[in-house]
């Protein structure tokens, strides 16, 4: 059982990579990427960059055209207490989403983004 789960786990964002248990989604928040406009997106892996750039927004309609957005989801494992944050960066275009990349943080580097939500 665990072997199959171990094989499948890397492909399941919401599964804990240690104990293979389904993690709880504790936060789901939309962010605008301040100053990152269409054709100016560059991949980043530095948590400080995301802490500086991401500004929480209530919905995609509240950001101007051409500005990148990010969907941040924070997971928590009820068994081992591990947390994981997935930041999905995309360009919203008339109701569609042009996906750029998913960035993962599993050591609480960007947990501050969800503090007040």
């Amino acid at each position: 059982m665990n072997i199959i789960k171990a094989i499948r786990a890397p492909f399941q964002d919401s599964w804990c990579k240690k104990c293979f248990k389904t993690m709880d989604e504790t936060h789901n928040q939309l962010f605008a990427m301040a100053g990152v406009t269409v054709a100016h997106f560059r991949p980043h892996a530095d948590p400080e960059y995301f802490l500086r750039t991401l500004k929480p927004i209530p919905s995609l309609s509240s950001i101007p055209a051409g500005l990148y957005a990010c969907r941040g989801v924070r997971y928590h494992c009820p068994k081992c207490g591990r947390t994981l944050v997935r930041l999905s960066i995309f360009l919203p275009v008339r109701g569609k989403e042009k996906e750029e990349e998913d960035v993962y943080f599993d050591r609480g580097q960007v947990d501050r983004l969800f503090e007040y939500h």
Binding site: V38, A39, G66, L67, L91, V93, R94, K96
Partner: peptide, 18 residues
């Protein structure tokens, strides 16, 4: 219409119009 090229073009055009 759902390719990255077209979506990027529409996004740029929408932004400039705005």
């Amino acid at each position: 219409m759902d390719t990255d090229y077209i979506l990027t073009g529409i996004s740029k055009a929408d932004m400039m119009a705005e």
